[in-house]
């Protein structure tokens, strides 16, 4: 066995064991047929292809073929929500406290948050006019800008939006990275419509500083996102399409982070304390951040247990596992 073949077989561990046993020789043989004989290491693209294929096969073995489309649906909803919030916060940024209040500001804006919100507004435009790689790069840039605002502002002594605002935006952004490259025009228009809607919504009502606005707007946005997700899940399930269910499962983490103020309030005082303490807020956010992603593998395992058939033959070679 050559060094290259051994390395391909090492990467093949991304696949389930029984599938490796059935198809491993065939898959590795094809990689070797395609590879330059002088090559000693699999290319990065081949490694990514193997890992992606292995993950896809594990989902297929668990009967969760529709998880990937579900994640893409969740990504569009997350991107739309992130754009709505960016439009809303961009308005809040335009009304800094008066100078006599002595509150630090960032130039003509309330805080450094304006950098992140502008990056998100660029994403909302790009997904409409340049879907695909350009949009994903812009989403990654917006996520990094949001994280930079979160981390760099305190070091530079500049005011930033509260964690309550920035953390759910990062969670929505990470999910939005999975947005589909081949969306129809109406779907591509959703983020920019939501961003304009957020800005208009902010204008239509009186909104104060970040903290008070966040406590009102974020849980409501989370509830709307959950409602839309559930409605989509029910509507699609009526056509035996389970994407919506997976989308709701994936969206639970950002929805929980949007509602962290309510969750922390429920912990501090049954029924929801009006002002949960800072440690309770951080604790609630950490709990959501850890438990939320754990729901997905649990749901996949449950799907496998309910729908899996351990004695099913390999669909291609017919071998019984």
């Amino acid at each position: 066995m050559s060094t290259l073949e051994r390395r391909y077989r090492h990467l093949l561990r991304a696949y389930p064991m029984d599938y490796r046993h059935d198809r491993g020789d065939e898959i590795v043989g094809t990689y070797l047929d395609l590879a330059d004989p002088r090559r000693r290491w699999p290319s990065v693209a081949d490694a990514a292809d193997l890992v992606r294929g292995g993950l896809r096969q594990r989902l297929r073995a668990a009967g969760a073929n529709d998880l990937a489309p579900g994640v893409r649906l969740a990504a569009l909803l997350a991107l739309t929500t992130a754009a709505f919030l960016a439009g809303f916060w961009a308005l809040v940024e335009q009304y800094p406290p008066p100078a006599e209040a002595g509150v630090p500001v960032f130039g003509p804006f309330t805080s450094t948050g304006i950098v992140a919100w502008l990056a998100w507004l660029v994403v909302a435009v790009l997904v409409l006019v340049a879907p695909g790689r350009a949009t994903r790069v812009a989403v990654a840039g917006a996520v990094l800008a949001t994280v930079a605002v979160l981390l760099v502002s305190p070091v530079a002594g500049l005011p930033r939006p509260p964690l309550l605002v920035l953390v759910p935006q990062v969670a929505l952004g990470v999910l939005a990275l999975a947005v589909d490259s081949h969306l129809p025009l109406p779907a591509r228009a959703l983020p920019i419509v939501a961003a304009v809607g957020g800005y208009v919504f902010g204008h239509a009502y009186y909104w104060d500083a970040y903290r008070w606005s966040a406590e009102q707007v974020l849980p409501a946005t989370g509830m709307v996102l959950l409602g839309v997700g559930v409605l989509l899940a029910v509507g699609l399930a009526m056509r035996r399409d389970w994407r919506g269910g997976w989308a709701v499962v994936v969206l639970l983490t950002p929805i929980g982070l949007l509602s962290v103020h309510i969750l922390a309030g429920a912990v501090d005082g049954l029924g929801g304390a009006p002002r949960p303490t800072y440690p309770t807020l951080v604790g609630a956010a950490l709990t959501v951040g850890l438990l939320g992603p754990a729901v997905l593998p649990a749901a996949v395992a449950l799907r496998r247990r309910l729908g899996g058939s351990p004695s099913a033959p390999c669909p291609t070679c017919g071998t019984r596992r």
Partner: peptide, 28 residues
């Protein structure tokens, strides 16, 4: 599989280059 990858590349005038992980997933 190897022949399918070559044939798909030829049919698409080299635009589409399938990798084995993607091909076998599609075949499944």
């Amino acid at each position: 599989g190897y022949a399918i990858i070559g044939e798909v590349a030829a049919l698409s005038d080299g635009r589409l280059s399938l990798r084995p992980g993607t091909l076998y997933g599609a075949l499944d």
